[in-house]
Design a protein around this nucleic acid. Structure first.
Length: 232
DNA sequence: ACCCAGGGTCATA
DNA sequence: TATGACCATGGG
């Protein structure tokens, strides 16, 4: 909650945005497709999710009614490339049942963000990050999505300790970035992009890395904590 | 032959 | 409440 945390969070956003430019997330034609992607991308590379979505599209299964009507076994086969296909088939099926029972997008979008989050979290297979993906990228709510990359980046920049719970990090960023939905959208997208490319684009850079096993991690945390000037 | 990816749930201590 | 096992494909 401190002012220096807020400042670093804002500075980091500026740095990322300056380096990579706007990302215009989420890749997906409709809000419902975004929701499917949010479940399918759980602990999974996006390239594999795209293959699964293409399969669903070819099978004309990009709407909730189709997904609940086909056999779960067939659904699992369609989403096979995204991994965990049995688990995710069950999650998609349950999510779509819930979605239809709630009255679809029009009914859901009338709900306040906090209420909608609670309802999303009540669905089996929808955890905090998936719920916030849906809130931000399908319902355009001012919500920050905390993922593994966010934790690593903020920890290595000395912004957080690393053992904070999900919601405290989310609220911290939301308060630091008290501007608009667009910034929330871009910030998460930029962090993910940075996680993908930081160690590949500039493999010898000691101040830009958030990949899991980076040999420059210690240099990053030490320098940023002491000097107080963190550059991406 | 590893390691990792835009997590979440469940069982155990 | 806090770890650990489990789910599983595909790219580097």
């Amino acid at each position: 909650m401190s002012a220096r945390q807020h400042k670093k969070i804002q500075q980091t956003y500026q740095d990322l945005h300056h380096r990579y430019g706007p990302q215009h997330w989420w890749p997906g034609d409709t809000p419902f497709e975004v929701m499917l992607g949010a479940v399918l991308t759980q602990n999974t590379a996006w390239a594999n999710v795209e293959k699964a979505i293409i399969n669903l599209k070819q099978a004309h299964c990009l709407d909730p009614e189709s997904i609940v009507s086909i056999p779960i076994k067939r659904l699992a086969k369609l989403i096979r490339p995204s991994g965990y296909f049995n688990v995710k088939a069950a999650r998609l099926s349950r999510y779509c049942q819930w979605y239809i029972a709630q009255g679809g997008h029009e009914k859901l979008k009338a709900l306040k963000t906090e209420i909608l989050r609670k309802r999303l979290l009540s669905v089996h297979g929808i955890g905090p990050e998936t719920a916030d993906d849906i809130l931000l990228y399908a319902f355009h709510r001012k919500v920050f999505v905390v993922d593994a990359y966010t934790r690593r980046l903020f920890q290595r920049l000395g912004i957080i300790g690393g053992d904070e719970d999900y919601d405290s990090i989310r609220v911290l960023v939301e308060q630091a970035m008290s501007r608009n939905v667009k910034d929330m959208n871009e910030y998460h997208a930029l962090i993910v992009l940075h996680g993908k490319y930081s160690c590949k684009v500039r493999p010898l850079c000691a101040d830009c890395c958030i990949s899991r096993r980076c040999q420059y991690v210690k240099m990053v945390t030490h320098e940023s904590n002491k000097a107080g000037e963190t550059r991406l």
